[in-house]
Amino acid sequence: MKRGCLKLLLLAFSLFTAAGSSAGPLMEPIKPLPLDSAQNPSRVSIGRHLFQDARLSANGRVSCASCHDLAKGGADGRVRSVGFNGQLTAMNAPSVLNAALNFRQFWNGRAASLEEQVDAVVQNPTEMGSKWTEVVTRISSDPVYHRTFAASYADGVTRANIESAIATFERTLITPNSPFDRYLRGDTNAISAEQKAGYLKFKQYGCIACHQGVNVGGNMFQKFGVMGDYFANRGKPTDADLGRYLVTRDETDRHVFKVPSLRNVALTAPYFHDGSAATLGEAVDVMFKYQLGRFASAEDKTVIVKFLNSLTGQLPPQPP
Protein backbone atom coordinates (compact mmCIF):
# COMPACT_ATOMS: atom_id res chain seq x y z
CA MET A 1 0.00 0.00 0.00
CA LYS A 2 2.65 2.45 1.12
CA ARG A 3 4.81 1.60 -1.82
CA GLY A 4 1.87 2.12 -4.21
CA CYS A 5 1.23 5.52 -2.74
CA LEU A 6 4.84 6.40 -3.07
CA LYS A 7 4.85 5.49 -6.76
CA LEU A 8 1.77 7.53 -7.36
CA LEU A 9 3.39 10.49 -5.69
CA LEU A 10 6.54 9.99 -7.73
CA LEU A 11 4.50 9.99 -10.91
CA ALA A 12 2.65 13.10 -9.83
CA PHE A 13 5.91 14.89 -9.09
CA SER A 14 7.39 13.84 -12.41
CA LEU A 15 4.45 15.43 -14.16
CA PHE A 16 4.81 18.52 -11.97
CA THR A 17 8.48 18.79 -12.92
CA ALA A 18 7.70 18.56 -16.59
CA ALA A 19 5.11 21.27 -16.30
CA GLY A 20 7.24 23.55 -14.04
CA SER A 21 10.55 23.36 -15.90
CA SER A 22 10.11 26.89 -17.20
CA ALA A 23 10.56 28.41 -13.74
CA GLY A 24 12.14 31.88 -13.47
CA PRO A 25 15.89 32.39 -13.21
CA LEU A 26 15.68 33.06 -9.50
CA MET A 27 14.28 29.67 -8.70
CA GLU A 28 17.75 28.28 -8.15
CA PRO A 29 18.95 25.55 -5.77
CA ILE A 30 21.19 28.21 -4.20
CA LYS A 31 19.50 30.94 -2.16
CA PRO A 32 20.95 34.34 -1.29
CA LEU A 33 22.11 35.00 2.27
CA PRO A 34 19.76 36.99 4.49
CA LEU A 35 20.69 40.67 4.46
CA ASP A 36 20.59 41.07 8.19
CA SER A 37 20.45 38.86 11.22
CA ALA A 38 18.97 40.63 14.19
CA GLN A 39 20.63 39.54 17.43
CA ASN A 40 20.71 40.90 20.97
CA PRO A 41 23.29 43.72 20.53
CA SER A 42 24.68 43.65 24.08
CA ARG A 43 25.20 39.89 23.91
CA VAL A 44 26.78 40.29 20.47
CA SER A 45 29.12 42.85 21.98
CA ILE A 46 30.12 40.51 24.81
CA GLY A 47 30.56 37.70 22.28
CA ARG A 48 32.76 39.84 20.08
CA HIS A 49 35.07 40.53 23.00
CA LEU A 50 35.12 36.93 24.09
CA PHE A 51 35.82 35.86 20.52
CA GLN A 52 39.06 37.78 20.69
CA ASP A 53 39.78 36.93 24.31
CA ALA A 54 42.71 34.52 24.82
CA ARG A 55 41.60 33.93 28.43
CA LEU A 56 39.33 31.23 27.04
CA SER A 57 42.44 29.10 26.45
CA ALA A 58 44.23 27.36 29.26
CA ASN A 59 47.41 29.43 28.99
CA GLY A 60 45.93 32.58 27.47
CA ARG A 61 47.71 32.14 24.18
CA VAL A 62 44.90 31.54 21.75
CA SER A 63 41.47 32.99 21.21
CA CYS A 64 38.75 31.99 18.77
CA ALA A 65 40.08 34.66 16.46
CA SER A 66 43.51 32.98 16.42
CA CYS A 67 42.18 30.31 14.05
CA HIS A 68 39.12 32.15 12.80
CA ASP A 69 40.54 35.43 11.62
CA LEU A 70 37.71 37.49 10.27
CA ALA A 71 40.17 39.20 7.98
CA LYS A 72 41.13 35.86 6.49
CA GLY A 73 37.66 34.69 5.59
CA GLY A 74 36.99 33.40 9.08
CA ALA A 75 39.82 30.84 8.96
CA ASP A 76 43.58 30.99 9.37
CA GLY A 77 44.99 29.98 5.98
CA ARG A 78 46.90 27.08 7.55
CA VAL A 79 46.62 23.43 6.62
CA ARG A 80 46.03 22.67 10.24
CA SER A 81 45.79 25.21 13.02
CA VAL A 82 48.06 25.67 16.01
CA GLY A 83 46.56 24.97 19.43
CA PHE A 84 47.25 26.73 22.74
CA ASN A 85 50.42 24.80 23.39
CA GLY A 86 51.72 24.78 19.84
CA GLN A 87 50.29 21.42 18.82
CA LEU A 88 48.60 21.14 15.48
CA THR A 89 44.88 20.56 15.45
CA ALA A 90 43.46 17.40 13.89
CA MET A 91 41.86 19.13 10.92
CA ASN A 92 41.85 22.26 8.85
CA ALA A 93 39.97 25.10 10.50
CA PRO A 94 36.65 25.74 8.79
CA SER A 95 35.50 29.31 8.35
CA VAL A 96 33.42 30.89 11.06
CA LEU A 97 31.71 33.05 8.49
CA ASN A 98 28.15 31.92 7.86
CA ALA A 99 28.81 29.01 10.21
CA ALA A 100 25.49 29.84 11.85
CA LEU A 101 23.82 28.63 8.65
CA ASN A 102 25.50 25.23 8.68
CA PHE A 103 23.18 22.47 9.78
CA ARG A 104 25.88 21.12 12.08
CA GLN A 105 29.28 22.28 13.18
CA PHE A 106 32.75 20.77 12.63
CA TRP A 107 33.83 18.69 9.69
CA ASN A 108 32.25 15.62 11.14
CA GLY A 109 29.15 17.48 12.37
CA ARG A 110 29.64 16.47 15.97
CA ALA A 111 28.15 19.73 17.27
CA ALA A 112 24.49 20.42 16.65
CA SER A 113 24.82 24.11 17.51
CA LEU A 114 27.34 26.93 17.70
CA GLU A 115 27.12 26.75 21.51
CA GLU A 116 28.15 23.10 21.44
CA GLN A 117 30.94 24.01 19.03
CA VAL A 118 32.27 26.65 21.46
CA ASP A 119 32.07 24.14 24.28
CA ALA A 120 34.02 21.53 22.31
CA VAL A 121 36.76 23.92 21.22
CA VAL A 122 37.28 25.43 24.69
CA GLN A 123 37.74 22.00 26.21
CA ASN A 124 39.62 20.43 23.32
CA PRO A 125 43.03 19.37 24.73
CA THR A 126 44.79 20.53 21.59
CA GLU A 127 42.84 23.64 20.75
CA MET A 128 42.20 25.64 23.94
CA GLY A 129 42.66 23.02 26.63
CA SER A 130 40.60 24.83 29.26
CA LYS A 131 38.36 23.76 32.08
CA TRP A 132 35.10 25.65 32.25
CA THR A 133 35.36 26.44 35.97
CA GLU A 134 38.68 28.17 35.28
CA VAL A 135 37.31 30.00 32.25
CA VAL A 136 34.29 31.24 34.20
CA THR A 137 36.55 32.39 37.04
CA ARG A 138 38.89 34.20 34.66
CA ILE A 139 36.08 35.87 32.76
CA SER A 140 34.05 36.88 35.80
CA SER A 141 37.10 38.37 37.49
CA ASP A 142 37.17 40.93 34.69
CA PRO A 143 35.05 43.85 35.97
CA VAL A 144 33.96 44.80 32.47
CA TYR A 145 32.70 41.31 31.72
CA HIS A 146 31.21 41.16 35.20
CA ARG A 147 29.21 44.28 34.47
CA THR A 148 28.24 43.52 30.86
CA PHE A 149 27.24 39.94 31.63
CA ALA A 150 25.16 41.09 34.61
CA ALA A 151 23.39 43.55 32.31
CA SER A 152 22.67 40.96 29.62
CA TYR A 153 22.15 37.74 31.56
CA ALA A 154 20.15 37.29 34.72
CA ASP A 155 22.73 34.89 36.18
CA GLY A 156 25.84 36.77 35.08
CA VAL A 157 28.97 34.97 33.96
CA THR A 158 28.32 31.26 33.48
CA ARG A 159 29.55 28.59 31.11
CA ALA A 160 26.22 28.61 29.25
CA ASN A 161 26.21 32.41 29.00
CA ILE A 162 29.76 32.51 27.63
CA GLU A 163 28.77 29.96 25.01
CA SER A 164 25.62 31.90 24.29
CA ALA A 165 27.42 35.20 23.88
CA ILE A 166 30.02 33.80 21.49
CA ALA A 167 27.38 31.93 19.49
CA THR A 168 25.24 35.08 19.36
CA PHE A 169 28.18 37.03 18.02
CA GLU A 170 28.88 34.30 15.44
CA ARG A 171 25.29 34.50 14.26
CA THR A 172 26.05 38.01 13.09
CA LEU A 173 28.99 36.83 10.99
CA ILE A 174 26.94 36.53 7.82
CA THR A 175 28.38 37.75 4.53
CA PRO A 176 25.55 38.89 2.31
CA ASN A 177 25.66 40.74 -0.96
CA SER A 178 28.17 38.55 -2.76
CA PRO A 179 28.04 39.15 -6.53
CA PHE A 180 26.31 35.83 -6.97
CA ASP A 181 23.71 36.69 -4.32
CA ARG A 182 23.06 39.97 -6.07
CA TYR A 183 22.66 37.96 -9.29
CA LEU A 184 20.21 35.66 -7.53
CA ARG A 185 18.29 38.68 -6.34
CA GLY A 186 17.84 39.76 -9.91
CA ASP A 187 20.92 41.84 -10.69
CA THR A 188 21.87 40.01 -13.90
CA ASN A 189 25.03 42.08 -14.33
CA ALA A 190 26.36 41.30 -10.90
CA ILE A 191 28.45 38.43 -12.23
CA SER A 192 30.36 38.02 -15.46
CA ALA A 193 29.34 35.88 -18.39
CA GLU A 194 32.11 33.43 -17.51
CA GLN A 195 30.85 33.18 -13.96
CA LYS A 196 27.37 32.55 -15.30
CA ALA A 197 28.81 29.83 -17.51
CA GLY A 198 30.69 28.48 -14.49
CA TYR A 199 27.44 28.32 -12.52
CA LEU A 200 25.84 26.41 -15.37
CA LYS A 201 28.72 23.93 -15.39
CA PHE A 202 28.51 23.74 -11.59
CA LYS A 203 24.96 22.57 -11.99
CA GLN A 204 25.51 20.41 -15.04
CA TYR A 205 28.36 18.43 -13.56
CA GLY A 206 26.36 17.85 -10.41
CA CYS A 207 28.38 19.90 -7.93
CA ILE A 208 25.04 21.42 -7.10
CA ALA A 209 23.80 18.06 -5.82
CA CYS A 210 25.71 18.65 -2.58
CA HIS A 211 26.57 22.34 -2.70
CA GLN A 212 23.17 23.93 -2.67
CA GLY A 213 20.95 25.82 -0.32
CA VAL A 214 21.57 29.15 1.25
CA ASN A 215 25.08 28.24 2.31
CA VAL A 216 26.05 26.49 -0.92
CA GLY A 217 26.68 23.37 1.13
CA GLY A 218 26.67 22.94 4.86
CA ASN A 219 23.35 21.17 4.93
CA MET A 220 24.26 17.51 4.48
CA PHE A 221 26.86 14.82 4.99
CA GLN A 222 28.63 13.16 2.14
CA LYS A 223 31.17 10.49 1.76
CA PHE A 224 34.54 11.81 0.67
CA GLY A 225 35.38 9.52 -2.23
CA VAL A 226 32.06 8.39 -3.61
CA MET A 227 33.44 7.59 -7.03
CA GLY A 228 36.96 6.63 -5.98
CA ASP A 229 39.10 5.93 -2.96
CA TYR A 230 40.52 9.35 -2.11
CA PHE A 231 42.27 8.25 1.06
CA ALA A 232 44.00 5.27 -0.51
CA ASN A 233 45.33 7.49 -3.25
CA ARG A 234 46.36 10.22 -0.81
CA GLY A 235 48.01 7.91 1.70
CA LYS A 236 49.00 8.55 5.32
CA PRO A 237 45.56 7.88 6.76
CA THR A 238 44.71 9.68 10.02
CA ASP A 239 42.00 9.31 12.61
CA ALA A 240 40.46 12.49 11.36
CA ASP A 241 39.97 10.86 7.96
CA LEU A 242 37.34 8.58 9.52
CA GLY A 243 35.04 11.61 9.57
CA ARG A 244 31.60 11.05 10.93
CA TYR A 245 32.46 7.50 11.86
CA LEU A 246 34.22 8.98 14.89
CA VAL A 247 30.87 10.36 15.99
CA THR A 248 28.46 7.57 15.11
CA ARG A 249 30.73 4.50 14.88
CA ASP A 250 28.52 3.52 11.97
CA GLU A 251 30.43 1.76 9.15
CA THR A 252 28.40 3.60 6.57
CA ASP A 253 29.67 6.85 8.06
CA ARG A 254 33.29 6.04 7.39
CA HIS A 255 34.93 8.95 5.52
CA VAL A 256 31.70 10.83 5.69
CA PHE A 257 32.05 14.58 6.27
CA LYS A 258 29.81 17.56 6.40
CA VAL A 259 29.67 19.09 2.94
CA PRO A 260 31.40 22.44 3.54
CA SER A 261 29.84 25.71 2.57
CA LEU A 262 31.35 27.30 -0.53
CA ARG A 263 30.54 30.80 0.70
CA ASN A 264 33.75 32.91 0.60
CA VAL A 265 35.52 29.80 -0.58
CA ALA A 266 38.03 31.92 -2.50
CA LEU A 267 39.28 33.28 0.87
CA THR A 268 39.62 30.05 2.80
CA ALA A 269 42.41 28.06 1.17
CA PRO A 270 43.72 25.48 1.79
CA TYR A 271 40.80 23.17 1.27
CA PHE A 272 39.29 19.95 2.63
CA HIS A 273 39.50 18.63 6.16
CA ASP A 274 43.11 17.77 5.64
CA GLY A 275 43.93 21.03 3.89
CA SER A 276 45.33 19.01 1.06
CA ALA A 277 44.19 21.29 -1.74
CA ALA A 278 46.11 24.51 -1.76
CA THR A 279 44.05 26.19 -4.48
CA LEU A 280 40.50 26.18 -5.69
CA GLY A 281 41.62 24.59 -8.95
CA GLU A 282 43.13 21.65 -7.11
CA ALA A 283 40.06 21.31 -4.95
CA VAL A 284 37.81 21.29 -8.03
CA ASP A 285 40.00 18.61 -9.56
CA VAL A 286 39.67 16.43 -6.46
CA MET A 287 35.95 16.89 -6.44
CA PHE A 288 35.58 15.89 -10.08
CA LYS A 289 37.68 12.81 -9.55
CA TYR A 290 36.38 11.43 -6.29
CA GLN A 291 32.93 12.91 -5.88
CA LEU A 292 31.55 13.30 -9.37
CA GLY A 293 33.52 10.52 -11.05
CA ARG A 294 33.64 12.58 -14.18
CA PHE A 295 36.06 14.14 -16.49
CA ALA A 296 35.87 17.86 -17.14
CA SER A 297 37.69 20.09 -19.51
CA ALA A 298 40.17 22.68 -18.26
CA GLU A 299 37.89 25.43 -19.56
CA ASP A 300 34.97 24.09 -17.63
CA LYS A 301 37.03 23.90 -14.46
CA THR A 302 38.27 27.44 -15.00
CA VAL A 303 34.80 28.91 -15.30
CA ILE A 304 33.67 26.91 -12.30
CA VAL A 305 36.50 28.42 -10.25
CA LYS A 306 35.49 31.83 -11.54
CA PHE A 307 31.96 31.15 -10.45
CA LEU A 308 33.20 30.13 -7.01
CA ASN A 309 34.92 33.50 -6.76
CA SER A 310 31.56 35.19 -7.12
CA LEU A 311 30.49 33.69 -3.79
CA THR A 312 32.63 36.06 -1.74
CA GLY A 313 30.33 38.31 0.30
CA GLN A 314 30.72 41.25 2.62
CA LEU A 315 31.16 40.91 6.34
CA PRO A 316 29.15 43.54 8.22
CA PRO A 317 31.44 46.32 9.49
CA GLN A 318 33.08 45.27 12.75
CA PRO A 319 33.69 47.82 15.48
CA PRO A 320 37.39 48.34 16.27
Partner: peptide, 9 residues
Protein backbone atom coordinates in the same frame (compact mmCIF):
# COMPACT_ATOMS: atom_id res chain seq x y z
CA UNK B 1 13.89 12.02 -4.31
CA UNK B 2 12.12 12.98 -7.51
CA UNK B 3 14.39 15.94 -8.14
CA UNK B 4 11.63 18.50 -7.84
CA UNK B 5 13.62 20.06 -5.07
CA UNK B 6 17.37 20.13 -5.26
CA UNK B 7 17.86 22.38 -2.25
CA UNK B 8 18.40 20.26 0.83
CA UNK B 9 17.83 23.20 3.18
Amino acid sequence: RTGVETNYD
